[in-house]
């Protein structure tokens, strides 16, 4: 079996990303939930798996129901990217609201203390 440079790079990146996620989770760093760790393992683990076993994409194509294995990989990637964007936008939205609440509380502090 011939191993290409891109496969080695992909495997190394996947190992670094997963190990960082596991380390953050074990150390209980704030915001590192099990859900986030699971997503990290699925995304980077999936990439590593395809890098090691390129034929795995055929298996993925069968599961997704798309004949072309590359198309199946791209589609799966799109879906995962979409999910991540959705999650990010939700987090930004939540943060925006929290900033507004803090700003409001701060501006009303004087009025509240007069009450």
């Amino acid at each position: 079996m011939t191993i290409h440079v891109y496969q080695i790079i992909m495997i190394l990146v996947a190992i670094v990303m997963i190990s960082q996620g596991v380390k953050n989770y074990i150390r209980g760093r704030s915001g590192q939930t099990l859900y986030k760790l699971a997503i990290r393992i699925v995304v980077w683990g999936g990439m590593g798996l395809i890098a090691i076993f390129p034929d795995f994409s055929n298996f993925l194509a069968n599961i997704v129901g798309i004949k072309g294995n590359i198309n199946a990989v791209i589609l799966t990637g799109f879906i995962l990217t979409f999910l991540m964007i959705f999650k990010l936008l939700s987090a930004i939205e939540r943060l925006e609201q929290q900033i507004s609440e803090v700003t409001r509380d701060d501006s009303l502090k004087e009025l509240k203390s007069e009450k």
Partner: peptide, 8 residues
């Protein structure tokens, strides 16, 4: 009263 930063 004033918002310290612009919030819309």
């Amino acid at each position: 009263i004033k918002h310290k930063i612009n919030r819309g």
